[in-house]
Design a protein around this nucleic acid. Structure first.
Lengths: 333, 333
DNA sequence: TTGAAAGCGCTAACAC
DNA sequence: GTGTTAGCGCTTTCAA
């Protein structure tokens, strides 16, 4: 029942080798033969068996999408964007998501499952340990990182240092001087993790304004709303004269607003809040934020990956701009 | 460099067949041989080549995830849940998302790309045309639908009729009599589409209260916020005595709130609003809604699919409950 | 430009 | 319980 390459070959009166060449668009086939073979393939409803193609050619027309979550705003949008590019190229995406514990430790990801299974890997919003990076590289397939990644790798991202600096400067310009920072994970040792870079940007802005970043102004919200809430509560309790806060993600900023509501406080009157992301629902609460184009990041990253798979050399870093959406949650002191 | 099955066979002093049997856990191998082979496989870092396994066995240990979007709340959570089950079973997910046009017409999905590529298919929050359903069935692999699907298929979902009825009843109980309904796509002909069922539930509730559902009370928001906004504007303009509205999704309800804000109106004072979904950010605006467990739906659906792939027969329908989250956007007339 | 034939790395009858 | 062997359905040299 399933029609194979030799059914096509027989019907076309050529060898299977010629069918293979004709259908995969290789140059050394006469135009007339190619047309005939293509017509017959369509007529017979022939489609190559992926595993046979992979086994024989070593190519899979599939890439791996590595991500810690799929339902968070950043990640789902990066995936959405990546799918767009992949679809256009007829590539599939093998979704690999990982259990992330509250303390940021994931079970060391077993990337062996990817070996010989994909033509490339897209790492989305995930800080890999050096061991994992090494493992990935041993796959010997093109690699693209989205959001953050080792500096010597192909990376599509925003400028995290500049973005956090800008967020902080926005608050400084409004006259705030006691500004908290809600970061990701407290123990993240990877220097290129976005939270580490954002902390740098925050500190740079403060210093440029003649202020010293103090440990008591730092809290860690693990990029999610509950963490944002806990961090805000912590900062509010610890720093009585706190007037503003920079959250490394909008979801954490929502958590900050939760605490304010619970305590009968209001943004921006009692606390100015600025987030990073441009979550589409931020406007529901008038969240001031620095917006990034996560879909665009994913789309671009997948496109680069496909080019690399095609043998091209691509620019090492693509930096996306960030847009200030000045809304209601930040105001002058 | 890549270690193959015969490297293991040689090192263990057995045949490749035995290695295959030992490693894939088949019964007819002596315990001692199995242990030895396993130890050597680990030592050598052997992992079977997926395409070779698939080609020889016909199994892929991969399922297809069909979804129109990945960044929408419902879909990303279903996917997240499905990934959890799949990960536990060592299965991969091939993500297939589709371009959906504003008018709900998608390019007829070419599911040929799935043939021989997956062991099963999970259809998430996507109304398939009869032709697509037929195509899917011709794949001859287990199929599970999440959200909505043909009644004779395995389906994991909420009771859409009952949920919409309950939402409408909630408003009726508050004294509302002019209640609008913001549905999905205006031209959806598939009887089992959630929006069709929800429209039924809405109508049932009205009739039970002695009211007649009127066409002028219906609008179509395509399940997204912009559509919800347009629908609300339309209803508000068309029905001067409108006092409440049921939105088929929380994202559309957010759009309704947008319009109210733009017009200087407020919920629930000027219009009571109730959504369906339980979007985690609904509480930011106090959205009253009927919540469903999208992650649970995905997790369960994937689990069922895996069981079916394993040869088991599973219950045809799994119906998840829905929870009323009575918050601020709905009040007595 | 085309064909013949040797694999790609594994599984599954079948035989022992 | 284990080995032998014939494929699985393609791609890709190599010859012609």
């Amino acid at each position: 029942m399933p029609v194979g390459i030799d059914d096509v070959a027989r019907a076309a009166g050529v060898s299977t080798a010629t069918v293979s060449r004709a259908l995969s668009g290789r140059p050394d086939v006469s135009a007339s033969t190619r047309q005939r073979v293509q017509a017959i393939a369509v007529e017979l409803g022939y489609a190559p068996t992926p595993s046979a193609v992979s086994l024989a050619s070593g190519r899979t027309r599939t890439i791996a999408l590595l991500t810690p979550w799929v339902s968070r705003w950043f990640h789902s949008n990066v995936i959405e964007g990546a799918c767009r590019s992949l679809r256009a190229a007829g590539f599939g995406a093998l979704l690999n998501s990982f259990e992330v514990h509250e303390d940021a430790t994931r079970p060391p990801v077993n990337l062996e499952v990817l070996r010989r299974r994909v033509d490339g890997v897209l790492v989305a919003g995930m800080t890999m340990s050096p061991a994992e990076v090494a493992m990935l590289e041993s796959l010997r397939v093109p690699l693209v990182y989205v959001g953050s990644g080792p500096p010597d790798q192909v990376l599509v991202h925003i400028d995290d240092v500049a973005t956090a600096r800008r967020a902080t400067e926005h608050l400084l310009a409004l006259g705030h001087t006691r500004i908290g920072h809600i970061s990701g994970y407290p123990t993240e040792p990877t220097p290129w993790a976005s939270e580490v870079e954002r902390a740098t940007g925050y500190a740079e802005a403060l210093r440029a304004a003649g202020l010293e970043p103090e440990p008591e102004l730092m809290a860690y919200g693990r990029f999610a709303r509950p963490g944002g809430r806990a961090s805000a509560a912590e900062l509010l309790d610890r720093v009585p004269d706190l007037t503003a806060v920079v959250a490394d993600s909008d979801e954490m900023a929502f958590g900050v607003l939760d605490v304010l509501r619970e305590r009968g406080l209001r943004a921006p009157d009692d606390l100015s809040v600025i987030g990073i992301d441009g979550h589409p629902l931020g406007d529901l609460v008038g969240l001031t934020t620095l917006a990034q184009d996560a879909i665009g990041l994913g789309e671009t990253a997948a496109r680069l990956l496909l080019e690399m798979i095609g043998g091209a050399t691509v620019e090492r870093q693509v930096v996306f701009p960030t847009t200030l959406l000045a809304r209601d949650t930040a105001c002058a002191r």
